[in-house]
Design a protein around this nucleic acid. Sequence first.
DNA 1: AATGAATGAGTGTTCATTCAT
DNA 2: TATGAATGAACACTCATTCAT
Lengths: 227, 227, 227, 227
Amino acid sequence: MPPHAQEQPFYKTMTQTEQTARRLPRSGRGTSSKCEQILQSAGQLFLQQGYERTSMSQIARMAGVSKGSLYNHFENKADLFTAFFEERSRTRLNTLKSVSRAPQPDLRTALRQAAATIITLMIDPEAIGLYRIVVAEANEFPNLADTLWHYGVSRTLTGLAEWFADKHATGQLVIRDIDLAAEQFLTMCQTRIIHRSRLSLPVDTSQTSIDGVASMVADSFLKMYAP
Amino acid sequence: MPPHAQEQPFYKTMTQTEQTARRLPRSGRGTSSKCEQILQSAGQLFLQQGYERTSMSQIARMAGVSKGSLYNHFENKADLFTAFFEERSRTRLNTLKSVSRAPQPDLRTALRQAAATIITLMIDPEAIGLYRIVVAEANEFPNLADTLWHYGVSRTLTGLAEWFADKHATGQLVIRDIDLAAEQFLTMCQTRIIHRSRLSLPVDTSQTSIDGVASMVADSFLKMYAP
Amino acid sequence: MPPHAQEQPFYKTMTQTEQTARRLPRSGRGTSSKCEQILQSAGQLFLQQGYERTSMSQIARMAGVSKGSLYNHFENKADLFTAFFEERSRTRLNTLKSVSRAPQPDLRTALRQAAATIITLMIDPEAIGLYRIVVAEANEFPNLADTLWHYGVSRTLTGLAEWFADKHATGQLVIRDIDLAAEQFLTMCQTRIIHRSRLSLPVDTSQTSIDGVASMVADSFLKMYAP
Amino acid sequence: MPPHAQEQPFYKTMTQTEQTARRLPRSGRGTSSKCEQILQSAGQLFLQQGYERTSMSQIARMAGVSKGSLYNHFENKADLFTAFFEERSRTRLNTLKSVSRAPQPDLRTALRQAAATIITLMIDPEAIGLYRIVVAEANEFPNLADTLWHYGVSRTLTGLAEWFADKHATGQLVIRDIDLAAEQFLTMCQTRIIHRSRLSLPVDTSQTSIDGVASMVADSFLKMYAP
DNA sequence: AATGAATGAGTGTTCATTCAT
DNA sequence: TATGAATGAACACTCATTCAT
């Protein structure tokens, strides 16, 4: 019996959320080249300038289509925005789900590597941009957070939890609440580098710097959960 | 000799930042009642809707002054925005600096209480709003992050670091890098509740929930640094 | 060898000017009826009130289009202004180029007639308006003067110079510097009537008055250049 | 009996004009240092940018006084503008009235010198500016032309006419219509240099260039009026 | 006489959206 | 389906002028 299935009543509030996030995009949208072209340009602009600062004319111009065409493919600006966000979240954030799948003889090394991968993926300009958009438009577009969580965070947490459950089963780790442990691990990865990157604060993002934080995360995690 | 003064070269990149953040607002601004009236209304709207969605007309209407009056007190929209942000950051975030000053016989209890205080302060709607604004406008207004860091994060970290240094001196904790430890503590406090609040995701913010995370933070921290 | 090709070094400074003036308006602009409609209204207002006193709202109202439509056809107010000026200069001032082409048995009569034509054309309200606009906006829109010179003055001078060269060849006139002579002729035509008209000073613009100045110009010119 | 008093019915239309121009400025205005300070700044701005582009705030700022003070000294913007124009016309254009008073043994030399003086004075940036303002605001402020004519042109013409009358009396010149001759002389002086300067067209304003035009004017004038 | 905050109509310009072609 | 001209409301901002101090 997996230990993390026992008792997590107080933070399990994602039911409604995950449902909404699973809403599929309009059928066929994105398959046509015109659509992709528009979504591509819209994405670039939305990520750079945010929702309000990006105009439909700008998107049309960059996509090389007429302004009217935008409205043939998307109901309005909000619809185009949502479509862009879902597509980007789906295609770019799914890299996170495979974190730490490579087997490593040494657990500490494996943890370090997982942390370093997570940090690297999350300070990618596109990931930072998506995070910014969600936070910026949290009031106007509450669904964005669901999407981000669904495609980004949720999978990573699940992946980590399965991994930790395995280590728990083999006795390499002793974890009472596995979901919480996964969330702690992910949170600790955000120390300094990710956090400051999201604020555009000056920060050292060299590999050395990333490895430094990753080591700290692995060491701390082991102190917390090593038998 | 304090141990945290020895060797933290790779993440010390805040020098320029803290300097910029210390820039004071235009002298006298905010003293006049009209100014405060405007800043008050502007703040409410900016926090609710963000920078772009808030119009000068809206602000004037809510403040009960003419649109032209806004420009007698502030150079332009960006200037008013910056003034609002600095004033709010200064007056609201300085509550964070006194975190954990109350003496507690039990270190674990004190850590729990500190974590709970931090969480409570940071999920306050105004704190969440300020964070959102910084993230949303990080490209357009890079100085906001400096201000937020200066008035919000920096003081909290310093407070925590001094506290930990004291515990290290008395042998209750064994910490090699005290600044890093403070940053870790603050980061762990953001697990789940703060993180999800920033995304407007549904989350349990009851005292029980907060205490749960706070306990986890305190326990983990002790596992990492208790002798 | 034409005598006017010999030595006029010191006042030949129009090379750059004439080049710039030859810049054509955006292709197709003015062909659409909406464009012409806008240019027509803009012209009337600009000529009456000048650049600054004419508002885009006024133009839109008079043209019977929405304010936004103005910006579908012209980049901004300055662009619309320039377009109006070039179109008017081209279509109205080219009447000047054919001055004095009618053969006349008597040279004195021909000169009188040419002078009278020039005066009549240059005190036309539209010509006066264009001149005023150029002078008024010389600092803000330096290109206007180039356009006016190109379409208005330059052609007239060339026409006169060719005519005088012919008379020089046949011995009816003896002119050392033919370009200068043409410029003198044109300048003398501005005595009193044109000059005062440009200042809106009260002036007799009857045919009799015009003929009086024209006779004076012809007589003086002959005294200066008759063999 | 002065010959120029005989028969100039058709161009004598200045009666009303000269009356208006003689209207005196408000008593005392300009004597106070504050007033002069304001007029000085207003003048600089009006000459540079024209009436519409100059704002009362700009003037107040440059004069170092409050915006309200402007309205203590002048009824409104138009009043300040008119006051500036009259003061400048009076103080700067009266240099023109003394043209050609220096006795010269050689008439040709004297004429050349007079022409050169006129040209030099009229291409002075301030004179050009005043001319531009009159032309630009001819519709909105018709009185400016009267003022300019009264203080600028009228005096020069009178001076020239008296001089020519003297030469006619001594037989050095033979002139039927002396007023017309004076106006011709003044007009010819505007050939090329003055004309182009008013349009801000590139033009050679070196002493050599000025002397060239002045010589041409003198030679032509002598051919027209030498016995 | 001097100030400067207050005003509200006005400016040029941009916007998302529509619709006839 | 694709276009691009048309729209009118909204935008940030400026203006000349007033008036209580």
